[in-house]
Each structure stands twice: as structure tokens, then as C-alpha cells.
């Protein structure tokens, strides 16, 4: 599998394979977008307990934050709904420089 250009089904297959291999796994899905969002609704990112990930929910802007949240979700087993808006560059917070807003649902695979 080409990890640079993973297709949607490769990502879900990875989620299945990683879980079967005994790894803690979470699946993040873009559930809503407003304005200019880099990845469409339904886009997936799969994350394991060590922070390895495949896929994308943005153009690389918020994946880091989603991975961190996903590791908490793997621990707790409780799904989370995350929202990301425009980045405030002066505050160094995580956000989308494109000016859009997205909501990302993060759930554990168990």
C-alpha cells in the first residue's frame, strides 16, 4: 500500500488490520464543513495508540490535534466531536488557514 496516497478504502482497511493486530485504534471522520474546507465531508483519518496515522481530515493543518485527541479516545473509549475554525496566527492555536470550519467525529474501533 502506498501510504502517501492512501485511498478511502485503504484507510478503513488499515483501521481493520491495525485493530486485528491488537493495536488501539481510533477513526476520525469529517462530519461537517463550512466555507473553504480542504477535505470533504466523509474524509477519514485512522490513528493508532502510538500516534501513527493514515489519511487526512484537512490539508495537514489540524491532523496533529486530531491525533492527540484520538489517543484520548482510544484510552477512554468515548467518542468526541471536535470543531476547528480559522487559525489565529498570533495565538499559535490550531486551526485552518484557509478560513473554513470543520467538525470532526473521533471514535474508537473496538
Amino acid at each position: 500500500m502506498d501510504t502517501m496516497l492512501a485511498r478511502d478504502e485503504d484507510i478503513l482497511k488499515a483501521a481493520e488490520d491495525w485493530r486485528k493486530a491488537g493495536r488501539g485504534v481510533a477513526l476520525a471522520t469529517v462530519v461537517e464543513t463550512w466555507g473553504s474546507a480542504p477535505r470533504p465531508t466523509g474524509s477519514n483519518l485512522v490513528i493508532d495508540e502510538e500516534g501513527n496515522f493514515l489519511g487526512s481530515v484537512s490539508g495537514g493543518c489540524v491532523e496533529g490535534a486530531v491525533v492527540t485527541e484520538a489517543m484520548d479516545v482510544i484510552d477512554s473509549g468515548k467518542p468526541r466531536l471536535l470543531e476547528f475554525g480559522v487559525a489565529d496566527e498570533t495565538a499559535w492555536n490550531v486551526g485552518l488557514s484557509c478560513g473554513g470550519r470543520i467538525r470532526v467525529y473521533v471514535e474508537k474501533v473496538d
Binding site: 478504502e9 478503513l12 482497511k13 483501521a15 481493520e16 485493530r19 486485528k20 477513526l27 471514535e107 474508537k108 474501533v109 473496538d110
Partner: peptide, 14 residues
């Protein structure tokens, strides 16, 4: 998502 459900999704797509 339950692993069994994920397997169903992947099997249908395959």
C-alpha cells in the same frame, strides 16, 4: 465503531 461493523463495511466495498 465495532470491529465487526468495520469488517462488514470493508467486505461490502471489496
Amino acid at each position: 465503531m465495532q470491529l465487526a461493523e468495520l469488517q462488514t463495511v470493508n467486505a461490502e466495498r471489496a
